[in-house]
Design a protein around this nucleic acid. Structure first.
Length: 278
DNA sequence: CCCCAGTCCTGCGGGC
DNA sequence: TGCCCGCAGGACTGGG
């Protein structure tokens, strides 16, 4: 968390600042260990100041602002980062403030409780090096059925583990991997090599259905309450989860089996042994 | 190619 | 009731 639906919701919330101009970037009041900011703030400010924000974008789980200079501001929220146009949840974890001029919001804030995220200003060359096709796979909302098979079909890894590989497909994290496989009716431990053409079709369909439904609900705000959209409002897709964090509960799809929790690649995996076939 | 453990970090909830 | 420990997992690294 946040994964593709949450990051896409953040991006959409930033649309009002398109057409605005960057005035300055400065550190927020947070006095903990600083997050990764590149280049250092003075250079960041010199290069970004005066630039028009031409568009918002998203690369997997990162939000981007495309500047008229060709440079991009890239926010990577990791576990607890938020990109905000509204007041942050606390002042204490407010890391970066980007002041703007123009019709809409006066500033964009980057807030991050755990501070694992980053804010970067990348030249087109740096952008291409970090996010080229050899570094990051097709977006989970764009990937075609053929690409699913081509990119993952030969892997001997368990399908759940492969879904988390951002070089294979970009944007899926632990929560949505569980929900997608449940919807597709596939056991998370099944090796990719043992998936049939029909399985890949169901994964492709489940992926677009689950992620677009989650975007419609503005993402999932879990019990820790961290995730918020750009206006600091909670999402509601957590109410639609069928397996994630529901260990022991009866599956709402088959109505019979209890949801199980296992560990794969050091991460929790939730699935329904009744609905999801090996 | 793939796996595992460790790293960053904070807040919380389980257990005693 | 209070305190400590372990867990949450996104991206990355180094060793096997």
């Amino acid at each position: 968390m946040p994964e593709l639906p949450e990051v896409e919701t953040m991006r959409r919330g930033l649309e009002p600042i398109v057409g605005g101009t960057v005035v300055a970037i400065e550190r927020g009041p947070c006095r903990r260990r600083p997050i990764a900011i590149e280049p250092s703030l003075p250079a960041f400010g010199r290069r970004a100041a005066g630039q028009l924000i031409q568009a918002t974008g998203r690369i997997g789980k990162r939000v981007t602002l495309e500047l008229s200079s060709g440079d991009s501001i890239v926010f990577e929220p990791r576990m607890t980062g938020l990109v905000l146009l509204a007041d942050p949840p606390t002042q204490d974890h407010l890391r970066v403030r980007i002041r703007l001029s123009g019709r809409a919001a006066r500033e964009v804030l980057y807030w991050d409780r755990r501070g694992l995220g980053s804010v970067r200003l990348l030249t087109p060359r740096q952008f291409a090096a970090r996010f080229g096709p050899n570094k990051i796979g097709p977006d989970a909302l764009q990937i075609t059925q053929a690409e699913w098979r081509e990119r993952l079909g030969a892997s001997r890894r368990a399908i759940k583990v492969a879904l988390l590989d951002q070089r294979a497909v970009a944007g899926i994290g632990n929560l949505y991997a569980a929900e997608i496989l449940h919807q597709a009716g596939i056991d998370p431990r099944r090796p990719c090599t043992r998936l049939t053409r029909g399985d890949w079709t169901r994964i492709a369909d489940a992926c677009s259905e689950i992620l677009s439904a989650a975007i419609r609900h503005e993402g999932s705000t879990l019990s820790d309450g961290t995730y918020r959209n750009a206006l600091n409002l909670e999402g509601s897709y957590q109410n639609q989860h069928r397996v994630y964090d529901r260990e022991g509960e009866k599956c709402t799809l088959c109505g019979r089996a209890a949801i199980r929790r296992i560990v794969q690649a050091q991460r929790a995996t939730f699935y329904c042994p009744g609905c999801q076939k090996r």
